[in-house]
Each structure stands twice: as C-alpha cells, then as structure tokens.
C-alpha cells in the first residue's frame, strides 16, 4: 500500500492536475451559468447607469448610499435578479450531481474518458446519487434542527450575560463545531459516492452504511485529509480578498480576474477532495483488476493422413 496521508493529498492534487479538463469544464459551466444570470441584471443596470453622471460614485470608490439608492430605484434594476441567480445556481447544482459519477470514474481510472464513456458513467450513477442526496438531506435536516435548538439556547445565554464578548465567542465556537460536523457529513457522503463508483454499487442504502463505517472507522485520517485541502482554499481565498481590497476600485478587469481565481480555487480544492478520497479508497480497498480474456491459443496444424 502506498505511503501516508500526505501522499494522498499530493497525489490527489496531481490527479486533478493531470485530469484538469474536468476542472475547466466545471468552471466553464459555472461561469456560463453565472453569465446567464448576470446579463439581464447588467442590462437593467445599464439603463439607469450608462448615461448617468451619478454612476461615477460607484466607479470611483464604492459609495454605499449610491448603491442602496440604485437597489431601491423606481425602475428596480435588481428585482428579479435574485430569482435568476438562484435558478442558475440550481441548474449548476443539478449539473454537478449529474457529472459527479463521470468525474469519479475519471479519477478512479486516472485516464481521459471519451465523451461517450464520460456521459455513460454520469448517466449510470445519476439516479443513484439522487437517492444518496435524499439520505444526505435527511442527515442535514437533523443537523440543522440540532444546531437551531442549540443556537437558540446559546443566544439566550449570550443575551442575558453581562459579558458582551460571550455572544461572539459562542458564535465562533458554535460555528466551528457546525463546520466540523458539516465537513464530516460531506466526507461521509463523498466516500459513499466513491464507493458506489468503485464497486459499481447499485444499492445506495448499503453503500451509505458502509461508507459510514469506513468514514468513521478512519475518521481522524480522513478528516485531516479534508481539513488540509479546505485550509488551502481558505488561505487562498483570504489572500485573494486581501489583494482585492488593495486593488484600485476602478480596476474592474483585475477585480474580475481575482473573482474568477477564487472560483477556480474553490472548484479545484473541491475536486482535490474528491480525487484524494478516491485514491485513499483505492489504497485501502484495492479494486480487483479486470482479468483480460484469455487469448485464443494458436491453431493446431492439421495433420493429413499419409496415402
């Protein structure tokens, strides 16, 4: 079996890099859907801003009151925009649910699949992953209810306490606990998906339970694997934000590039988690190699009887 968890993280990153077509396709769809949501909003904004000198207050710096006035403008340039963004975000979500089978197959085989193979894999796992999603939503609902109840109690504690910072620290602590819980749930279900693809499993309840055993039986190493990759994202995002705040407000192009870098980083690190978990699974649960069909034996020379 190959070396420790660091090796899995790095190997996962290399796998994502080798199969980067997946990353760029996902990013491209994300960008395209984002543009679909943005173009109508931009059109309505343009009708108010493009020929108005007052728009300067949004270009040179960012005057918050000008923005708020724009939002409340009688022509309502942003009304309906949220619905559009939500819709296209949902489309992206469905897209990701669809392609997850294909991308896990790419990582499992570590080879470029033809479009036919890719989409065949996507299709064959899509409904299984829909069933898995239902399980995920049930688990998340339970987490949400628990978090809500605890939150109400903590809020009351903070409200009644004379210590002003208590509320803040409770929020931070509670937030961290919730983050750990959510990461744990995600890596559990990622494992279920990896296993479903690796074992060509059709029974999602079985894979859900076995993934649970696998994930929680190896929780420290798996969680640490996920956490390290997540840290790459958070640190990278913080760096991008820091640069963005330094950038002059009129540098729209640079601002766009920084935003896209953040999105690529997120897609990349998420795929890194998938790839690393696939490799981790392969190293723990080696997949039986396909047995090549026996080669036909060479034809026996025919012996003709002597006359």
């Amino acid at each position: 079996m190959a070396g420790g968890e660091s090796g899995v993280v790095v190997a996962g990153a290399r796998l994502v890099w080798r199969r980067q077509r997946v990353l760029w396709w996902i990013y491209g769809v994300n960008l395209l859907l984002g543009l679909f949501a943005t173009v109508p909003v931009a059109s309505r904004l343009g009708r108010v801003l493009n020929r108005s000198l007052a728009a300067e207050r949004l270009v040179e710096g960012f005057d918050l009151t000008a923005y708020i006035e724009l939002v409340a403008h009688p022509s309502a340039p942003l009304v309906g925009g949220e619905a559009g963004s939500l819709f296209f975000s949902l489309v992206f979500f469905v897209f990701m649910l669809f392609v997850t089978g294909g991308l896990l197959e790419v990582y499992r085989r570590d080879e470029t699949l033809s479009p036919g193979e890719f989409f065949q894999a996507c299709g064959s796992y899509f409904w299984r992953f829909v069933r898995l999603l239902i399980f995920l939503l049930i688990v998340l609902a339970a987490v949400g209810i628990g978090a809500g109840l605890v939150g109400v109690g903590l809020d009351r504690l903070a409200e009644d306490s004379p210590r002003e910072k208590l509320g803040f620290w409770l929020d931070v602590g509670g937030g961290l606990v919730l983050l750990v819980v959510l990461m744990t749930v995600r890596l559990w279900f990622d494992m279920a998906q990896v296993r479903a693809v690796a074992e060509e499993e059709r029974k999602m309840r079985r894979t859900f339970l076995r993934a649970f055993k696998l994930a929680f039986g190896n929780f420290p190493s798996l969680f640490w694997l996920y956490l390290r990759i997540s840290l790459v994202f958070w640190v990278g995002l913080a760096a991008i934000l820091w640069v963005w705040v330094q950038v002059p407000p009129q540098a729209i192009g640079l601002s766009f590039l920084l935003g896209q870098a953040a999105v690529v980083l997120w897609v990349g690190t998420r795929l890194g988690q998938r790839a690393s978990e696939t490799l981790w699974y392969q190293r723990r649960q080696p997949v039986p190699t396909a047995v090549a069909p026996p080669e036909p034996s060479p034809a026996e020379p025919s012996v003709e009887p002597v006359a």
Partner: peptide, 13 residues
C-alpha cells in the same frame, strides 16, 4: 459602462 460592468462583475461573482 464602467459602473455597470463593475456591479455586473460583483453580481457574477
């Protein structure tokens, strides 16, 4: 169109 592009960029992101 600078203001529009700027806000559209934020919206896109």
């Amino acid at each position: 169109r600078r203001a529009t592009r700027k806000l559209a960029n934020y919206w896109l992101f």
